[in-house]
Structures are given as C-alpha cells and as structure tokens.
Design a protein around this nucleic acid. Structure first.
Lengths: 233, 233, 233, 233
DNA sequence: AATGAATGAGTCTTCATTCAT
DNA sequence: TATGAATGAAGACTCATTCAT
C-alpha cells in the first residue's frame, strides 16, 4: 500500500473518531465503535494509532491546526488595524468554540496537560501513553503558535495606534485570550439565567466585545474630555 | 445516633472524598478507597451518598459554598470602592483556583452540566444519577449566588464612580468573571512558555489585573483630564 | 403490648408484603420497602418474621388458606351433585388464579419445594431458612387439605352417579387439578395466539370446562342412549 | 477462525450453561462459573452472549427446539390414529419434563414472559435485556410450533374417527396440553402424599392417561352399564 | 418492642489491548 | 496490512441481615 493510501486510511479513522468523540464524548466512544464506523477491524485501528489516547491526541492536533488556521486567516488579511484584527479574531474564536465544542474541549484538555507537564511534580501522573504519543509531542512544539500570532496582532495595534501604547503585547494578548476562554465557559450558564439576572446571550456578546475593545484601546470617557476640550476652543 | 453524629459521619466521608478526588481524580478514586480511607464499610458510603456521582455533587456543592464565601467575604468589608472590591475579588479568586484545583474543576464541571441542563435537547444525555442528586438540585438553586454578589460589587462601583457609569453591571461582571476563568486556564501554560515568549506568571498577573481594572474604570489617560477639568470648576 | 396488638402488627406487615410481592415480585421487593410501606423500621420486620423467606412462607400460608376456603365454600353447599361441585370448583379456581396471581404463584412455588423436599437427594439444596420457617412447617401439615376436599367432591359424584363409577376418586381429582393448573398456565399465551390459531379465551374456557365434565361423566355419545331410552316411556 | 469454530465455541458455552443451570439454578450460576467451566475467559462469554439473560434465552430456545422435535417425531410416524398420537405424545411429553426439568422450567418461564409481553401494560416491566435478546425474538416466532403440531394430531383423530367428531381441534389440544402441564406440576407432590391419600405415581400415570383418552374419544364403558340398568325398568 | 446505622459478601458487565493467523 | 477472537483487570452497586442502643 502506497504511503498515500496509508495516510488516507489514517485520515479516515481520524475523521470517524472526531465524529464519534463529538457526538458521544471521549469516554463513551469505544475503539470498536471507531473501527466499525470506519469499516475496518478493531486491530487495524491499533495499527494506525498506538492506543486510544494517541488517537485523541491526533484529534487534538487537528483541532489545534484548525484553531491556528483561524488565527492565520485573520492575521493574513491586510489593511486592518490591530484592534480590528483582535475584534475579528474574537468573533471568529467564539464562533469556532461554538461550532466545534469537541475540538475546543480537546484544546483545553491539552492545556491542562501542558500545565501538568510543566510541573515536575505532576508530570509523572500523566498517562505514559499520552507522553509517548507522537501527536502530543508535536503539539508541544506548536503549542505557542496561536499565541504568537495573537501577540503579533496586538503588536500591530500598538504600532498603528489602535491599541494603547503602554500595553505589553504578550500580556494584553493573553488577557484577551483569557476573556475568550472564560466567555465560552460562561456563555451557556449565563444565557439562561433568566428571572433575576437579565443578561442574555444576545446582549452579552456585544457588551463583552465592547469591553474587550475598551480594555485595549482606552475607554469612552477618554473621549469625552476631548469633546469638552474641543469646546474650549 | 443523634443527627449531629450522622452529619459528622457524612462530613467525614465528604472530606475523604475531597482528599482522594484531589489527589487521584474522580475516575481513579474508587468508592472502596473512600470507604477504606474513612474507616467504614463500602455499604455505608452508599447509605450516606446515593452513588458516586451524588458524592461528587456533594463535593461540588461544598466547593461552590467555599467560592461563595470568598465573594461574600470580599463583599461584606465596608469602605471599599466597587472597583477595589472587584480587584480584591480577582486576587482572591485566582488564589482560590490555585489553592483548590479540584474544587474549581468541580465548579467548572457543574457549569458544563448546567449548560447541558438548559438545552432541552441535551438534558436527556445527562446521567440520571446526577439529575437525581439532591446536591445537584441544591446547586441549581444557588448557582447564581456568586454572580449576584459580583454584580452588586460592580453596581457599587457604578454608584461610587470607581467604575465607568455607562457600563451594565451584569455584562461587566460576567466579563470580569470570564477573564478570571480564562486566566486560570491559561495560567499554567503561559507561565512556562519560556524562550520566545517572555511572559511569566510573575509579570502576567499584575498586568492582567491592571487591564481588568482599566477595562472597568477607563484608562489612566482618559481619567486624568476629567480630574483636571473637575478642578477647573 | 398485648398479643392481639402483636398479631395486628404482624398482620400489617404481612398485608404490606402481599401487596408489594404482588406488584413488584418477590425478588424486586426489598425488606426495606416492606418496612417503609408498613411505617415501621427495618429491624422490626425481622422481629416479626425471621427473614425474607419466612415472610414469603407466611404469605404462601395465607394464600393456601384462601385457596382452601374456596374449596370449602364449594364443598359445604348442600344439594349439588359431585360433578356440579367440580364444575363450580373449576370456575372458582380459575377465577382465583386470575384474581390472585401472586398467591397462586406462591402456591405453585410451594409445590415445587415440596417436590424437592420429598426427594432425599434434593432436600439438602433447599434454603435452610425455608426449612426453618414455622410457616413452611405448617404448610407441610396442611398441604393436602385442598386435595382431600377435592377427592371428597369426586367421591360424592361417584356416589350420586354424576361421575362415572369406574373412576378412582384420587386419580380423577388430581387429573382435574392438573387440568386447572395447566389451564392457568396456558391461558395467557393462548389468549393471544391470534392469526393462525383461532382459539381465544372466550371460547376456550367453556370448551375446556365441557371437556373436563365429559371426562368425568362420560361423553355425549354415552348419554344419547339414555335420551333414546327416556323417549321410550 | 472459521465460522464453524465460532459455532462450536458458542455451543460449548451453551452446553456448559445448561449443565450449570440444571445443577445450580439460574440465579446461583455465575457467569464466571460458566466461563471457568468452559475453560475460557469471562469476557469471551460476553462476546458470544450479550448477557446472562441472553444466555438463558439461548438455553430456552434450545429447550424449545428439543420439545418441538418430540412433537415432530411423534407426528411424522405414519399409520397411527390421532388418538394414538396424542397418547404417545403424552407419554413422551411427560418423559421429557421429567428428564429435562431445567429445560421445562425454561419453557414455562418463557410462557410467563409471553403473557407479560402480550399485555401492553406489563410489557414495560420485562427486563430490556430479555426483549433485546435475539433468542427471545426467535422464540416469539416459533412459540406456536408445538401447538400447531398438536392441533394437527387432534385433527387427524377427528378425521380418522379416533376422537369425538364434535370436538374443536384447537380447544381439545390446548386442554390436553393443560393436563400435561398440570400433571408435571402435581407429579412431584402427589407421588409422595403417602399415608392418607393413596395415589402414587405408578398408578396415577395410567389413570391420568386413561382419563385423557376418555375425554377425547368418549367413554365406552360409561354408556353400556347405564343402558343395561336403564333397560331393567 | 423498636430503631436505623452499619456490614460486606456477592456479581454482572465493560473495554482497551493483544496476538495468532 | 488486516482480522477478530480472546483476555482479564477493574469497579460500581445491592441488600439481607445484624446489633448497639
């Protein structure tokens, strides 16, 4: 079998796994389900992926690539201010998390792993199968790619004046990212708070984006004095 | 056995569960481990908690209470501006998430559950044992308590002028909360990014807090003119 | 507590057990259910009945008494031929089995036990708790009471000429009883055979009773000569 | 492994199960016992049979097939009157129930299930594992095969004059079957009644068979004496 | 008589993974 | 490459029964 055929089958398994993980979750998805759905034998699945964790890491890798492409797509469009890029990124990011719940969960799970991985005392508790996964290793290598692109966007904003100059690109970007991660987390619960708390998805999102922008560029009040000052003339 | 004794034993089991969940994780912790560690029989564990999920919901409930007390402690101290409260809360929240990883994971897990619970189509997929847990039901009742306190803090800030008046208390607070949730999530990975990206925990945190404050109050440059102008009158 | 009060409570438990065994079956009925439904503690149940099997034997005893009273009620009505008694008994028996499924199941279960009990090699396999139950012992004593009454009815029939004289009362009665037992067993499945087999409950029962009578008294052909002769007068 | 090997192993497990169910009963037989006795792993048992109930249904299916073959063997012998067939069947049936207690219990258990299954209100209470068992489904399909053969035998008897022409084949056969079922049930208890009731297996059986025959063909003796006596007047 | 907390043996079932072919 | 039979460790949960009070 030519290596392209091999890759094709590998991709088939991966796609099936993504589908099943999405619909049933990691734990509820059995290796046999994957095999059956892919129309191959259980044993063959283990030929292409060392074990279930390895398969999940492969899925995570794909999720990460997808997310990265979102960052890249935003970044490569010329003629936008840095703030605009961050704004566009925020929208795209939120859309992504909503459209690809499982991908996103995989990415967050990977972040947790990295955290453990970085703590010498906790690293030993990570499932060896994960550490041995080539996909996990690749992920370690590219884990900062999104961050770097995001930081670049902020940097652009600093240069073009759309973002407050006193900010640190790194800190600003990771803070933005924090907001996006947390937003996704709260989105569900908040949307249904009902009765006493009147915040709803429809009005939270624009408010959230506005606050995010304000945080980066400086706030409304900042403009008012200008207006007042203008009237001084 | 007086009911206080019953509560005492219930608490004993709960504490053991918290300890084991913390060190070994939910899945890796066996009910038998809990019983053994508590010095009781397996059956008795099931006498006090209907099943493993119920026990976990009890743990979650405790975690939630703990988090709530943090909000309350911050809130009840008089003489602070709203912004100061939010700032103090942010510090306390971050400390809490770091000191009580498991608690925090339980809370986030609960949030996910709530999300599913609120979607009619997904509710059926929730483990019935969870839905039947009295602790889960209690959690549903108190789920917004932290949010309400946080919104109060922002409201205070709006009244005392420490927070930009044009903000909506609800939106502002949930955005702050998003930041805190996301921060915890990124804290680990970011802290060790090393080499190319020079952001480190020590310097991210103050920057993050600063951005959070700026977002709420308006940026330094923006406010100064106001002060100057005010003195003009 | 006066012994009458004691008996009252004992009866209460028994009635609850009958109710629950009827609705949920023996296995599915937990001792705790019985206690709860009776409004007493689990421990007290064990004060009145040595164990679950003992309770079941008590239920069986009551079932047997009930069945016996049916036999007796039929038997004590004067002025009926033996064949008529057996006919009435058959109707009453069938009604009883339908109205008291659980009672009837208990009686059949007891018959199985007796069978084992009578085989020396199998007796050791009977649950000791059953053998030790006083109710089981009482049942052993009265197990033939129904049979005796039935045999008496046949004997009456032999005497009054309503039943063929060449029959043995014992054999005839137990054969009748076999039919009744088997009828109950088949009633359910037969009633719904539908399509290809056109037998239905409504027409099976009269046919069944007719056959039973014919078996005892001799058949239609047998009677014809009587009719013919009668017309000779 | 060729599919014949697969069937061979499946049969091995089934045979072991039959052996153990026979000797220890369904409840007392553990799946692990079956595996151990068959010299395979516990897991493999579940590979061939979905669960314990499924295994039991497979046993029931085999029992039914065996019973069916008894009916068929009787039926296919040419040159016998219908009454003779029923007589032969009765003997064979009784022998079967005595030689295969467990098989027979399984068949009766299945009949109970069918009864529940046919009542819409009770169907929901049947263990889903039973309903899902392919063997249960097959049993539903063939449940009437024995009945049909039996009805054929009676029909033959009606045609050849060995059975009273006024009888309905269906009703007559199911009544015969009732007798056989009930006979088996009473056989045990009756055989040992001892003392007061002098019926014993040895003399019950011929009397029982005789009554059964009389019921079907009409009694010769019954008429003659009456005729004689009547003519005395 | 009465309570109810406490026991613990008992079992079905799942599933990732391996390996002979 | 590909199969699928075979493994076996692992674990949640039940419930009749007891016994200290």
């Amino acid at each position: 079998m030519p290596s392209s055929a091999r890759e094709k089958k590998s991709k088939l398994i991966l796609d099936v796994a993504i589908k099943l993980f999405t619909h049933k979750g990691y734990v509820a998805t059995k290796m046999e389900d994957v095999a059956k759905e892919a129309g191959i034998s259980k044993g063959l699945t283990y030929f292409y992926f060392k074990n279930k964790e390895d398969l999940y890491m492969a899925v995570t890798k794909k999720a990460f690539d997808e997310l990265k492409s979102i960052f890249r797509d935003i970044y490569k469009v010329k003629g936008k201010s840095g703030l605009q890029m961050i704004t566009d990124l925020s929208h795209a990011y939120i859309d992504f998390t909503q459209a690809n719940r499982m991908y996103y969960a995989a990415i967050l799970n990977f972040m947790d792993l990295v955290q453990q991985y970085n703590h010498e005392s906790l690293r030993a508790e990570i499932d060896p199968q994960i550490l041995e996964s080539e996909h996990f290793q690749k992920l370690l290598e590219i884990q900062h790619d999104c961050g770097k692109l995001g930081i670049q966007m902020i940097s652009n904003g600093l240069r073009d004046g759309s973002i407050r100059p006193e900010l640190s690109a790194e800190i600003a970007f990771y803070t933005v990212w924090s907001m996006l991660i947390g937003y996704e987390r709260l989105m569900g619960p908040v949307g249904y708070e009902g009765k006493e708390i009147k915040i709803h998805l429809e009005n939270w999102k624009p408010g959230f984006i506005k606050l995010l922008q304000d945080m980066l560029k400086g706030t409304v009040q900042a403009t008012k004095p200008q207006v007042v000052q203008a009237s001084l003339f």
